[in-house]
Simulated scan of single mutants.
Amino acid sequence: MNYRPVGKSGLSVSETGFGCMSLAKAPDAEATAIVHTAVDAGINYFDTADLYDKGANEELIGKLLKPVRSKIVLATKVGNRWKDDGSGWDWNPTKDYILKAVDESLRRLQTDYIDLYQLHGGTMDDPIDETIEAFEQLVQQGKIRHYGISSIRPNVIRAYTEESNIISVMLQYSLLDRRPEETVLDLLKTNGMGVMVRGALAQGLLAGKAPKEYLGHPVSTVQSAAGQVKKQATASGTTPSAWATQYVLNNPAVSSVVTGISTMEQLLEAIAPRPQPDAAWFDELERSVPASQYREHR
């Protein structure tokens, strides 16, 4: 397993991150085996959220990771609060809520500290200064080591880059979603912040799922991109997901690609050796998919 720094934070994380959201789908014994195998394979970055399964996901991850807590970088998220009747959730980035929510996450995760506490969204209408105050207070109290945000909105990312001490941004990025390449990736790299990528397989479209329109790309473009990835995978004896992931990892701003894992098969594919293509291959891929830009939240 290869490891990368998270910006200038001092944290080092596995290139393959473990996205925990769907792990509850696995039976208990299988979930235990999956997590232990992941740790043995060198995965040290595990990402969950208090929103997932109404907190039960944090409880599961906390139980499974407790024996190896000192070996891993544990990340969770805050900002979405379930309604009392369980019918949905509201957005709450206030200081009071964050300071209360962290204690519940710590309890569920069975830990004294969270390595990376992330705001689970964010808009320019939020009380951003207040939100930052909450995270800074938690750092001072030792309840969290670092904080970041999970957002695709350039204006929100820019605001936190300028006003806070975030160490990372989780965002969607893939060959079929090259919007972060316009300004966001360079902005974060320049400011010493890491990128945690989600959606590197574009809902599975780059890993064998039937093509469909995606983020404004017509079916023909999706087919072309998936075809390029599959061609290289077939020639090298690897998998399309490995090549799609390698495209994302080629950007120096990226710290980890967080892959949703709920089966042993998915884990083994995620930790399989990845190809090391030359620059010409990346150029060829980029010609197959036009670069796009964020149209909103600029």
Rank of each mutant, 00 (worst) to 15 (best):
D90C: 10
Y294Q: 15
G79V: 07
V258G: 06
V257P: 03
Q137N: 09
H217P: 04
V222G: 07
I114G: 01
L171V: 05
P240H: 05
Q232H: 10
T190R: 12
G121W: 06
D84M: 13
D103H: 11
E182M: 11
V39F: 04
A242F: 06
Q141C: 11
L11T: 01
S105H: 02
E133Q: 13
R295Q: 15
T239N: 11
F135W: 05
S224M: 12
Q232N: 07
S87D: 09
Q137S: 12
S262P: 02
A29R: 14
A33M: 10
G237F: 07
R145P: 08
G121F: 08
C20Y: 03
E59V: 08
S164K: 11
Y173F: 15
I166S: 02
Q141R: 12
G216P: 09
A242D: 06
A49R: 03
K95F: 09
E130M: 11
E182V: 14
L64V: 07
S262Y: 12
L60K: 09
S174M: 08
N57Q: 08
A33T: 12
Y3D: 04
M196T: 00
Y294S: 15
D85N: 15
V169S: 03
L60Q: 07
I149C: 06
V102F: 01
L11Q: 03
S151R: 02
L74T: 01
H146E: 13
I149R: 01
M170Q: 12
D112I: 06
V248P: 00
K8R: 13
I166P: 00
G121Q: 07
G88S: 12
R298W: 05
G208W: 02
V257F: 06
L185T: 01
F18T: 03
K230Y: 00
R274D: 04
A226H: 00
D90M: 12
L176F: 10
A253Y: 01
D47C: 04
E182D: 15
A200L: 04
K95N: 10
V68N: 00
Q223H: 04
G42F: 02
K71Q: 14
V222R: 03
V39D: 02
M196P: 00
P5E: 03
K83Q: 09
L201H: 10
L187E: 09
K230W: 00
A24W: 07
A270V: 12
P240F: 03
E133K: 08
V184D: 04
A244V: 09
M196F: 08
T239D: 10
T94I: 11
E286N: 14
